[in-house]
Design a protein around this nucleic acid. Structure first.
Lengths: 141, 141
DNA sequence: GCCTCAAATAATAATAATTCTTATTACTGA
DNA sequence: TCAGTAATAAGAATTATTATTATTTGAGGC
């Protein structure tokens, strides 16, 4: 087989690399705008459209995932291994590691629904550590 | 009988009732636009803003939930009892009933992360029955 | 039956996120 | 060097959602 076509995609690109690196290093599950603001300093001629474009590419290539939409903005994660997230009412998205994925659930759901299930994720709701502390300090609970 | 203050809120509103009824009857987890198109026939002077406004109210009042954003559009569900959903790549959202919520998970996640967890949901990915059939008929597995 | 008040509504303007378009630039292979 | 291709920036266009404003509706008191 001819991997010329392979070589043809996803080569050279300073900005692509910077966007991917920023995504991989971030723990905050950033939005496109978030990454744009982060990189604008070191890459002043970066455009928001380029960030959107590359984030879409990463997702298609399996280099990243979308963890959901918060306040209208899509949030991304460079950690593609299966793990869970908590969505805080303040807008923060927090990794929840250590919750195993029960593959039996997919089989069960498939039988129950007649759907073809390729996987699942667990979405937690509540308060991130900061908001939890703030609430406790102000007398709640 | 006189419970004036009760009567004072959420009384009269043909449109509110129609929107709520459409949401409760729908199994497709409609978007605001979806409901608007549905009701426009019987209520020609319904406005999209009214649909958005009432869907927000329902969510605040606990009469409905948001199940997520698909292709930029928020999708709602009048079934507020805990249950799971499958998100198909075609945009369909399918109820997955019969998957119990494991409350132990919330406690475990809380201990693991330092977050305050108020609940969780399971989000399945895959193909809805229609897309599954289509795929099988066209030869793929 | 009229009047007043408050809430619901429609229409539309405004806003915000995302996608699309176009021209330009940079790299690659011949 | 040159042609071809992909990446890019900038901004226009699109789309979903929210905010604003004036109007309408219905309830209750007179």
């Amino acid at each position: 087989m001819d991997n010329g076509s392979e070589r043809a995609r996803a080569r050279r690109s300073v900005k692509r690399d910077a966007i991917l690196k920023a995504l991989l290093q971030s723990k905050s599950h950033p939005s496109a705008e978030h990454i744009y603001n982060l990189l604008k300093q070191e890459l002043p001629d970066l455009s928001l459209g380029t960030v959107y474009r590359n984030l879409s590419l990463f997702r298609e290539e399996g280099l990243s995932i979308s963890v959901g939409v918060v306040k209208g903005q899509e949030r991304f994660d460079g950690n593609v291994s299966p793990h869970s997230h908590l969505f805080c009412s303040c807008g923060a998205v927090v990794d929840i590691d250590g919750i195993g994925i029960d593959e039996e659930l997919d089989i069960k759901a498939s039988l129950l629904s007649g759907c073809e299930i390729t996987g699942h994720e667990i979405v937690f709701h509540g308060l991130c550590p900061e908001c939890k502390n703030k609430k406790e300090r102000s007398g709640g609970n």
